[in-house]
Design a protein around this nucleic acid. Structure first.
Length: 362
RNA sequence: GUGGGCGUAGCUCAGCUGGUAGAGCACAAGGUUGUGGCCCUUGUGGCCGCGGGUUCAAGCCCCGUCGCUCACC
């Protein structure tokens, strides 16, 4: 493939972000188990939080009174908030879509109904005060018919225009979101129309919802060329370490994914030589760290045997140590990607990383 | 001591009028992609307390025995 990734810089009022970047997920105004100091120490440059979940609890007006998300959670680096579009997908059985917006039946306050429109999503995100906010979209399921994918993407485009119109002059960046299901021409149509509206950055949404990897890469390839070269490109909700490498190669600048944090809590670790499921019986007496080549706090201090014990016993420390390791792995991978691009050897770097993951069995 | 109840998978328990056993948890192996510390898939695992008896056939019925438990004395 001709492209080989690109280096970039996003400037916000809470500092600069160097891309390609991975954003740890902190849906409820916290990256589960970690303090802001932990996150900064791991090298996180920006984190992601969530409009819908914070709107439900504790409420955006309350967070506004505490100086927005930054003040509320005591994180002084950049924050990006997702608009709630993913919840249209993940909470499908609890919502109803109309042209005006989406009605959600709350899963936290006794089933009360909440009506989220593009304008409401922007208003909430302005109260939360994230540096980068997202247009309200619909992430559609897979598989989806071409008719539905088209109908949905056109509605998401109308919503995108309403978001752009509703946004006040807050100094926040607003990103549009490319949709279109698994149809290349719809992806291009979506990207072109968003660029016409004009956003500070562009996300590719609706991927990693069950399609195969070749299809996902094809959809990225159908979207990226239509996006302007001088704006950030954000692949939402993706992915595995391999996905990050494949994404960067195709011109993606930003990623977020719950995988390192969720898997960290569940005892599945990412390492330079592949996956380690720490609960497996084979680690019962293993004195090695998760990854002997890893420099994270967990690997510098604890054995696989101890970690397996903590997970089997359901101890809280297990979730924290696992999260630290996995995020360190992801953030290190991104540092490696950036430096390889700087040195003009991204393609070789990618090849080496992937080869190592396949060659060693532990 | 008398009367009742209960002994079934490592744990907590289902098992209809008899037809050679199930669930949840745990354990084991997968999965997890804009997060409910969840959840999903699959698998290992029981001479049904012990000994007799009735029956073509007993976890279920009968007798004995051991253990636990409740009530009364």
């Amino acid at each position: 493939m001709a492209t080989a990734g690109r280096l970039g810089k996003i400037t916000t009022s809470h500092g600069e972000v160097t891309t390609p970047v991975f954003m740890p997920v902190g849906t409820q105004a916290t990256v589960k188990t970690l303090s802001p100091e932990d996150l900064a120490g791991l090298g996180a440059e920006i984190i992601l939080s969530n409009t819908y979940h914070l709107f439900l609890r504790p409420g955006h007006e309350l967070i506004r009174e505490f100086g927005g998300l930054h003040g509320f959670m005591n994180w002084d680096r950049p924050i990006l908030t997702d608009s709630g579009g993913f919840q249209v997908f993940s909470l499908a059985e609890l919502r109803k879509i109309t042209e005006e917006g989406v009605t959600f039946q709350s899963h936290v306050d006794g089933g009360a109904k909440h009506f989220i429109t593009p304008e409401v999503a922007i208003e909430i995100q302005e109260a939360l005060g994230a540096d980068i906010i997202m247009a309200f979209d619909e992430c559609i399921p897979y598989p989806a018919t071409r008719d539905y994918a088209q109908e949905s993407l056109e509605r998401t485009l109308r919503w995108a225009r309403r978001c752009a119109a509703a946004k006040k002059n807050t100094g926040q960046a607003l990103f549009g979101i490319v949709q279109g299901g698994m149809y290349s021409d719809l992806r291009k149509r979506s990207a072109d129309a968003l660029v016409d509206i004009g956003f500070d950055g562009y996300a590719i949404g609706g991927l990693s919802v069950g399609e195969t990897k070749p299809v996902m890469y094809e959809m990225i390839e159908a979207s990226v060329p239509a996006l302007p070269g001088d704006k950030p490109r954000y692949l939402m909700g993706v992915g595995t370490p391999e996905d990050l490498l494949e994404g960067v190669q195709r011109g993606i600048d930003m990623f977020d994914c719950v995988m390192p944090t969720r898997n960290g809590r569940n005892g599945t670790f990412f390492t330079s030589f592949g996956k380690v499921v720490i609960r497996n019986a084979q680690y019962e007496k293993d004195k090695l760290p998760i990854d002997p080549e890893c420099g994270c706090y967990t690997c510098r201090n604890f054995s696989r045997a101890y970690l397996k014990h903590l997970y089997n016993a359901g101890e809280i420390l297990a979730l924290r140590l696992g999260t630290i390791h996995n995020l360190f792995f992801y953030l290190s991978l991104m540092r490696g990607i950036r430096s390889s691009i700087e040195q003009g050897r991204f393609t070789e770097f990618k090849k080496e990383v992937l080869a190592k993951r396949e060659s060693i069995n532990v």
